[in-house]
Amino acid sequence: MALTLTCPICGKRNGYEFRYGGEDKGSRPDEKGLSPADWCDYVHMNTCTAGVQKEWWFHRDGCGAWFSTYRNTLSNLEVDRPEDST
């Protein structure tokens, strides 16, 4: 609840209004030549960055927007740009 996130439609809100949507891994890869291990990596494996990562959030209790943002996983604070990692 302490975490605040900036919804592109509604502005800064309590973290509890949102649902976490995972690390940003880009759009789904083409099926051609995709091994089960590759697919499992895409779906389940995470980089688990200790620092700033790009991730998706869903504004569940508000406007229903899906958006990506940057968060420093060490301080659990949203940051403006990926360069903001201290």
Partner: peptide, 12 residues
């Protein structure tokens, strides 16, 4: 449901 649809089409 809306969340699910929007999630799986968010790059398109």
């Amino acid at each position: 449901t809306v969340e699910w649809f929007r999630y799986h089409t968010r790059y398109d």
